[in-house]
């Protein structure tokens, strides 16, 4: 077996203030779009931009509390885990991409996209 161990690679993808509060921005990548969210409280999260239901672009949904409602059929997805919330639990998950804030900049784990 040839397991590839990748070093964590953090890249700067923009300023926290580039993401609207209660909103999201898309980050295109060769492995699919990444959705970067900012809640009303200012916390930021990143998920692969594909709903576990039918791949809807979560970045286009309404952000409320710490969740986003998928724009296609309204599943509510937890931003921290990528999983469905409440009645939508258990239907798979949108992969989480580690994201950190340093000095107001957004740093994303490139190797986890």
């Amino acid at each position: 077996m040839n397991a590839i161990v990748r070093e964590p690679v953090w890249i700067d993808v923009g300023a926290v203030t580039d993401i609207p509060r209660r909103g999201a921005r898309r980050l295109p990548s060769p492995r699919g779009d990444v959705a970067i969210f900012r809640t009303g409280d200012g916390a930021v999260f990143a998920l692969m931009d594909a709903c576990p239901h039918k791949g809807g672009p979560l970045s286009q949904g309404i952000v409320h509390g710490q969740s986003v409602t998928c724009p296609l059929h309204g599943r509510v997805i937890d931003l921290a885990t990528g999983e469905g919330v409440g009645a939508d639990k258990g239907g798979g998950c949108a992969p989480v991409v580690p994201l950190e804030v340093r000095d107001g900049r957004l740093l994303l784990r490139l190797d986890r996209i």
């Binding site: 890249i11 993808v13 580039d18 980050l27 060769p30 490139l110 996209i113």
Partner: peptide, 9 residues
């Protein structure tokens, strides 16, 4: 406009 158009691997 997406956040960053160039994300290279």
């Amino acid at each position: 406009t997406p956040l960053s158009r160039r994300l290279e691997f």
